[in-house]
Design a protein around this nucleic acid. Sequence first.
DNA 1: TGCGGGTAGTGCAACGTTGTAAGTTCTGTG
DNA 2: CACAGAACTTACAACGTTGCACTACCCGCA
Lengths: 342, 342
Amino acid sequence: MPATLHDVAALANVSIKTVSNVVHDYKHVRPDTRERVLAAIKELGYRPNITARGLRSGRTGVIGLALPELSLSYFAELADSVIRAAEKRSLVVLIEQTGGGDREREIEMLSSPRLQLTDGLIFSPLGMGMADRELLDVPYPLVLLGERIFGGPTDHVTMRNVDAARAATRHLLERGRRRIAVIGGHEGEDMGSATLRLRGYREALAEAGVPFDERLILPAREWHRHDGARAMRDLLAAGTPFDAVFGLNDTLALGALRALQEAGVRIPGDVAVIGFDGLDETQYSLPTLTTVDPGRDEIAATAVRVLAERIEGRRGAPGNDGAGPREYLADFRLIERESTAS
Amino acid sequence: MPATLHDVAALANVSIKTVSNVVHDYKHVRPDTRERVLAAIKELGYRPNITARGLRSGRTGVIGLALPELSLSYFAELADSVIRAAEKRSLVVLIEQTGGGDREREIEMLSSPRLQLTDGLIFSPLGMGMADRELLDVPYPLVLLGERIFGGPTDHVTMRNVDAARAATRHLLERGRRRIAVIGGHEGEDMGSATLRLRGYREALAEAGVPFDERLILPAREWHRHDGARAMRDLLAAGTPFDAVFGLNDTLALGALRALQEAGVRIPGDVAVIGFDGLDETQYSLPTLTTVDPGRDEIAATAVRVLAERIEGRRGAPGNDGAGPREYLADFRLIERESTAS
DNA sequence: TGCGGGTAGTGCAACGTTGTAAGTTCTGTG
DNA sequence: CACAGAACTTACAACGTTGCACTACCCGCA
């Protein structure tokens, strides 16, 4: 049975409020009283009951992080960054998985009782789209990540997807590649990583006067390794000529790497490959993978900071008091490695 | 401002206790009363306040999961499994990272106030050792994972490390390999994955009458990809002959794969490689990696079940009422892939 | 008519904390 | 040495919920 304020107060011969005051570093406590209370706290091993505190204050010190799946490396690394960032603000992170792009589950999540003891949510949807925008108008602080919804009612932290994809494509074009396949297209998508990155790709092609070839766009609804490998095998089987591959994320690119090598294609000799996400493991593939680092730590730190600010009310709810929803853009960085060496 | 029992009670013209009774499906409520209450609940969008409930009942429905780092794939996949298993029991998971084997942080974690609103903890240490055993004697339900501590005061879920490593080594021996290098040794370790797996390795060698060669044991304190690659390069540089590599985990093996191929070594022609952990990505490396699947889902499900049982008190605290600490062993499975094909 | 036994519903206290307002004890000054 | 004002301390209520003990009622049976 853990000690309570009552126990400490009894032992130190003061009121429970005084103990509370000591715990909270309230100014007006005589040094000897403070001494006595601290001794009692130590003796009893008292630690404040966060649940009770939460009930009183309406805060729990817990933030939620809802993402598709931790087994997708990108989200595992994102969660790592978010937990670290939260720790710096003494917040603790509760993780919910919504599955790989399951729109229904994402929507359910937003009103899940499982989030009850959370002060706010960092939400990275993959299934919801622009049409679901107003569903983000929830009665608690919410920070949106990702590229599925723009202009929604909440703060949004994302990156310069179009610019980054343009830079990645340019990188290939500058190395003389002209037939650049793209893996990970989402047909019929109105908004999302695929759409934005494909836009950057087309812009770069246009800039360079290279014609766009529909056949080089390989759809892959999910972005796991085997989707990349499968898409690559399809392209090889189709016989469409190409001299470079742009994986819309690293996992796709790594899967493609594998399929290309199986087929005896030399990288980067015959085909150059570039990915997107800056995953740790892109440093250890063979060859090492050129990729775009989307500034994951920056995204995580910003998301946590903005959420914490909303929670503390230093800025009211978006659209409530003029502190409207804001969009934050993280900087990206192209990391050149062997897979696109000249 | 969310609705409370009071609001619902007022609207339905009953006492708050009756509302509470309806919410909890208490038998003695007349159908029409129940009807009225449910209507009021719906109208006000009432949802119980979990914090308050937690204060009353001493339960929060949250379990903690403390692990080294999510950016280590094994732990990301473990966390995924734990979250899924917890979800089935309507538990929610709060994740803490202790860093890659930081003993101090692990010990701190055990008494961290950050765990306060957690009903129990699943703990996977990497830095603590047998000597720290009694530190696990904490005043809340704790389930231990991993191979650092055996015979401690808590329930423990782990796998047959020695057997699995023996099987892995045998697998290589059966394919005619005699000079099997091992990556990931931990010198001076009294207990841990490295020690147990190395024991299985030596047992398999002894069984087969193959002499043990100290020079083939390559230490690697951390088990990241680059540690595997570094160790492999060291061995190649030393010129010690070898025809197989046993990575004590998959990440080490994948790093080794990379270093071997850089050096022009053919796999499995010149050197066969086997890993340990059954990571998803071992299916997509080139060549695909033979590995030992330690039954991660089973481990996670067991850990959550045992923890939930302790929390619900269906079995008292270990050593308290005869329901002493138990050890659970998950089954392993050797997955044969290209890296060890004959 | 009274009484046992079940059903339906209620009131109070408590979980451990903190904000408010008010009380008590000091200190220094006139 | 009185007294204002600051320094220190306290009692009480509340946060939203649930367990306990209780009342009120109804039915059937002796």
